[in-house]
Amino acid sequence: MKVAAMPQRPLPRSESDALVHDVTEGMPRLLEIMARLRAPDGCPWDIEQTFATIAPYTLEEAHEVADAIEREAWDELKGELGDLLFQSVFHAQMAEDMGLFRFEDVVRAISDKMVARHPHVFGEESRDKSADQQTLDWERVKAAERGNARTLDGVAMALPGLTRAVKLQKRAARVGFDWPSTDEVIDKIAEEARELVEAHTSLTEEERFEEFGDLLFVMANLARHLKIDPEAALRAANAKFTRRFARIEDWLAETGRKPEDSDLAEMDALWNRAKAEEKAGVAT
Rank of each mutant, 00 (worst) to 15 (best):
E145P: 00
K258L: 11
E278D: 13
V175E: 13
D41Y: 01
E80T: 09
E124M: 06
V185N: 02
R29E: 07
F90C: 10
R127W: 14
A95M: 14
E60M: 10
F103V: 04
F90Y: 13
D214K: 07
E211F: 01
T53H: 06
P44R: 01
E124L: 10
K240I: 03
L84E: 09
A280D: 15
L152N: 11
L136Q: 13
A190V: 12
T201K: 14
Q93Y: 00
S126V: 09
E104C: 00
A144L: 07
R117D: 08
L37K: 15
H225W: 08
P10W: 04
I33V: 15
R171F: 00
M98F: 05
A283M: 11
A246H: 13
K142C: 05
C43W: 07
M6Y: 12
T255F: 05
A144C: 04
G42L: 04
S262D: 12
V197M: 13
V155G: 05
E192S: 02
E205S: 08
A95H: 05
V65Q: 07
R171Q: 14
E211A: 06
L84G: 01
E231H: 01
E61L: 01
E32Y: 02
V3H: 09
L264K: 15
N272I: 00
E192Y: 06
C43H: 13
T182F: 00
G161C: 00
V141I: 15
T255D: 15
E96H: 08
D67C: 01
D261I: 04
W45D: 12
V141Y: 01
E64S: 09
G154F: 03
V175G: 02
S111C: 09
F177S: 06
P7Q: 08
R244M: 12
N221T: 14
A116Y: 09
E125N: 02
D178M: 03
R71G: 02
E198V: 10
A276N: 09
V65N: 08
E64I: 11
M157P: 01
D22S: 07
D128W: 10
E231T: 13
V175A: 01
T242Y: 04
A233H: 10
G256C: 11
R36E: 13
W74M: 13
L215A: 08
G99M: 04
Q8A: 12
I248H: 06
A237D: 11
R29W: 03
